[in-house]
Every structure is written in structure tokens, then in C-alpha cells.
Design a binder for these strands. Structure first.
Lengths: 231, 231
DNA sequence: CGGGCCTGACTAACTAGTCAGACAGTGACC
DNA sequence: GGTCACTGTCTGACTAGTTAGTCAGGCCCG
């Protein structure tokens, strides 16, 4: 893997094929077809499709890092809102949906595959730590009341993740807004210090068509996420 | 499918094979091997493996129904505790873990498979509705303070589901107890009416080895769940 | 003897990974 | 400048392994 552009070409093709066919139906041929090279070319650079997928996760993680750093200077409330928006992206974002659908298949293989599990842990720790850090920053700035940031982060990530998994597997888009609202009412409301409020556009009921609010709040949040492969 | 015992034999074998190999590596041969009949026998009774899996979900759902009805007479607090225990079963229960690992693979296919999705919706609605009903019962009995039971049920199920998915895919058993505790502290605590408390053994920190508390509280909860196939 | 239940042997499709060799660039030597 | 050898990149054709589903026929029971 001398040329980084070769790696990028293959990984981009892998990402695209993954979005189109899903993980289960991902074939070396399908990846090659989205490249101007042959199937053998892939096996020249990677020993196996598994290797390729493992490297893809790293590749996507690098992008997420870049993004996370860019957000770090914003105020905690805004960061929290952006985090929620990013995590509970709307069902309109077809690419995100397709990618996370495939990602769920990959996650479902993790119990059987040490290397996948390791990669997902890396990516997951990152996410959870980012949220915890936002919560801590909010406590320091006085925007959030005192609470156990570690516990809260764990529970919120679980709830977000659960909502996403349920939306994908059950095909019920309501889950996203329902969970978002329930979390806003039952948890985040109690999290804010006296006199502090979320930006108006946060709650989904205030912005019935998720599209508007999402593009407003999450545009630059989305561009550098773990799932955007195209610049 | 005249004989119900034939159906049961095949479905039990399917369940066992699913636990052992996972959904992805589930083969008609593996199912047949756990039967005293041949592979062809399966295709005599079912048109495809997909049909078989769809029927398995129905089969497991029937069992869950029986169980849910048996619990209905208990007090709401106890039912809620049992529900949480059942949902966040400990990592010691190897069969549960194996089954839910395979189930996750199945869920991951649901976005691509209408029939699986439909089955999972049935099973999921059941679960969410059961929880909502517990919450409503608790409000009526005065054990829980007033709240939006529908929203709360949606969010709790998402959080539970998220915790379970994360435990399975990341192999981090801490997630279960962490989320359980976080939910106990941050949500359920605020849910209880004045002077009402959970049974002592509820919190995982009070019962460090989950096994004891789990077998105590959840024994009969577990026997008839969607995942126990052996009587 | 007829029909439902069941089987072994088979096929058809699919795909990860291999391999022998083509090809292009590069440097070195005449 | 020409040519030869070498090396790294890339390819088409192939293999080997897997498995869902089929089918002709065997067996047993009424």
C-alpha cells in the first residue's frame, strides 16, 4: 500500500458498495466494479476482504477525528445539540441510512470477529468519550447542573444507539423523533441549569420536518462524520 | 405441516443451530443435524430457510405471550423490576447471549427483508406495549408519579436495547450494569412516587454478582421469554 | 395399491482467493 | 541513444469450497 490514493480509491469504492449492497452482500467484485481496476487488484493490495473492511473503519475514524476537533471550541449546549443531531440524523439522509444499515450488519458480526470488535470499540469509545467531555464542559461552564457525566454519557449513547438501531431494523422513522423528544423532556430538560435553554430548533416537534432543522444545525456536523466518504 | 410436533422439532433445532452458529452461518444442514431427520425433510415442510426463520419468530412470540400474561397480576414495581431484569439479563446466561447475538444478525437483515421486518415489528410492539402498560398501571396504583407513559416506554426500550446491542457487539459486559445503574439513578428514581422504593436487589451495585439477584428476581421471568426454547 | 412422508444424490449458482503472465517504468550498461 | 534486465503493478482465467433447493424414488400405513 505505497500510494495513499490507491488506498483511498479502494476504500471509497468499498464504502459505496457497502451502502449499495450492504455488508452481507458485499463482494470483492462489487468493490472492484466501483473502481477502474480489476478484482485481482484488490487482492494485490489487501490479503482479504476482511482486511479491507478493517482498514475502512480506520479510514472513516480518521475523518471523524478531524471533525470532532473542529467542534471543540463551540459552547457546550451547542455541541450537545449538534451531537444529538448528528447521532439521530433524519431518515431523509439516504446515504447515512444506507451506511448505518450496513454498519449494523458489520456490528452484528463483531461478536464472532475479534478484529471487527476491536475496531468498533475504538470508534465507540471515541463517541462516548466525546459526549462525556461535552457534559463535563457543560458542568464547568455552569450550563448543566452537577451530575455523573460518565454514567449519563453511557446511558445517552445507549438510548441514541437503541433509537437508531430500532429505526433501521423496524423501519419506523417515528422512533427517531420519539426518542429524541423523550430524551429532551425526560433527561436533557433536567440536565440544564436554571435559566438555560436549548436552541429553539432542537426539539423535533418544533421543527416538524426534520430536514430544515437538521440541515441548519448539523450541516457541518455531518460532512466530516464517520460516514461521509465524499468531499 | 400437519403434525405440530414436527414443527416444534424443526423449530427447536433451528433455534439451537442459530445459537451455535449464528444467523449468518445458519445452514439447512446444521438444522437437520440437530434433528433425527434429513435436510430434505426440512424442505418438505418449509419452502425455504427464510420461511423457517419467519415461523421461528412466531413460535418464540407465542411463548412470550404466555409468560407476559402470567406476570400481569403482580404489582407494577415488581413487574418493572422483572422487565428490566429480563431485558438486561446478565452475561452469564450463555444461551441468552448466544440467541440474542444471532437475533441481532437477523435484525440487521430486516432492512433488506420485508418479512423479517414485519416479524420483528410484531415482537417489538409487544415488548414496548408491555412496558407502557406497566408504567400506566403504576401511575394508576400511585406507585409512579404522573408522566407520559408512551414516551417513557419508547425511551426506556431504546436505552435497554441500545445497552444490549452494545454489550453484544462490543463485548463489554460493563455496559449492562452501567446502563442499568444510570437508568436507575437518572430516570427510574425520578419516576417513583414519594416514599416508594425499588426492591433492594434491583440495583446491580447492591448485588455485585448479577447471578444471585438475577436468578432470584428473574427466574420465572426468563423461563418463558422469547428466547427459551427448552422446557 | 395409493398417497403422504422422507431420503440420498444431485445440480446450479456463487464467490474468495490464486496464479502465471502481461505491461510499463526505470536504471544501467554498452 | 538503444536495449536489456528488473521490479512493482495489474489482470483474466481459473480453482476450490460452499450451500440452497430439487427430484426421483423408497418405505410404510391404511
Amino acid at each position: 500500500m505505497t500510494e495513499p490514493s490507491v488506498r483511498e480509491a479502494i476504500l471509497t469504492a468499498t464504502y459505496d458498495a457497502l451502502c449499495e449492497y450492504g455488508y452481507t452482500d458485499l463482494t470483492a467484485q462489487a468493490i472492484a466494479d466501483r473502481t477502474d481496476k480489476s478484482k485481482s487488484h484488490i487482492f494485490y493490495h489487501y490479503d482479504s476482504v476482511e482486511d479491507l473492511v478493517v482498514d475502512l473503519v480506520d479510514f472513516l475514524l480518521e475523518r471523524f477525528d478531524e471533525h470532532a476537533e473542529r467542534m471543540q471550541s463551540r459552547p457546550p449546549i451547542e455541541r450537545l445539540a449538534a451531537f444529538v443531531d448528528w447521532f439521530l440524523y433524519g431518515p431523509d439522509d439516504a446515504e447515512q441510512v444506507a451506511f448505518h444499515t450496513a454498519l449494523l450488519e458489520l456490528r452484528a458480526q463483531a461478536p464472532y470477529n475479534d478484529r471487527y470488535r476491536e475496531q468498533l470499540r475504538k470508534s465507540d469509545d471515541h463517541l462516548r468519550d466525546t459526549l462525556e467531555e461535552i457534559l463535563r464542559a457543560g458542568q464547568e461552564s455552569g450550563d448543566f447542573r452537577e451530575h455523573d457525566a460518565a454514567k449519563m454519557a453511557t446511558m445517552l449513547v445507549a438510548a441514541f444507539d437503541g433509537a437508531r438501531v430500532r429505526q433501521l431494523t423496524l423501519g419506523r422513522d417515528e422512533y427517531l423523533t420519539d426518542v429524541r423528544d423523550a430524551i429532551a423532556d425526560e433527561i436533557l430538560e433536567g440536565l440544564l441549569a436554571e435559566g438555560v435553554t436549548f436552541p429553539d430548533e432542537f426539539r423535533s416537534t418544533d421543527a416538524p420536518s426534520r430536514t430544515d432543522a437538521a440541515t441548519a444545525t448539523a450541516t457541518d456536523a455531518d460532512t466530516a462524520t464517520d460516514s461521509s466518504c465524499h468531499d
